[in-house]
């Protein structure tokens, strides 16, 4: 079964209680045909393990990299991905949409 976003937050709590460092990424805004709806979560631990999805696979790698920085300096970050963004050369949404992702540490 696919993990729902609710199960993902349960898992985030369990990871944190187990002593792992955890960040939660959330899709907070979408434009055009975004692959995952607003409110979708990706949970990342300090080792780069992850659960959930914010883009169906397009930009997860970059979100995970940024999440490791968020964990390291305990400071939230706002990320934006899409064709209108210069990072599209590096990571972009093939579907042509844009998404904004908020990444925060669990403290």
């Amino acid at each position: 079964m696919l993990a729902t976003d609710d199960q993902i937050l349960n898992e985030a709590e369990a990871w944190k209680r187990a002593g792992r460092q955890v960040a939660v990424a959330t899709v907070i805004e979408t434009w055009g045909s975004a692959p995952r709806p607003v409110g979708s979560h990706l949970v990342i631990d300090g080792e780069g393990n992850f659960l959930g999805s914010v883009s169906g696979g397009c930009v997860e790698g970059e979100v995970i990299t940024q999440a490791l920085d968020v964990i390291a300096d305990a400071t939230p970050r706002m990320l934006e991905f899409g064709v209108a963004d210069e990072t599209a050369w590096r990571v972009g949404l093939s579907c042509g949409g844009r998404i904004r992702v908020f990444v925060e540490p669990v403290t």
Partner: peptide, 14 residues
């Protein structure tokens, strides 16, 4: 996100 908020969120849902 504080662990306490996360835990309350999960507990309310359960």
């Amino acid at each position: 996100m504080e662990l306490e908020s996360l835990a309350t969120l999960n507990a309310e849902r359960a």
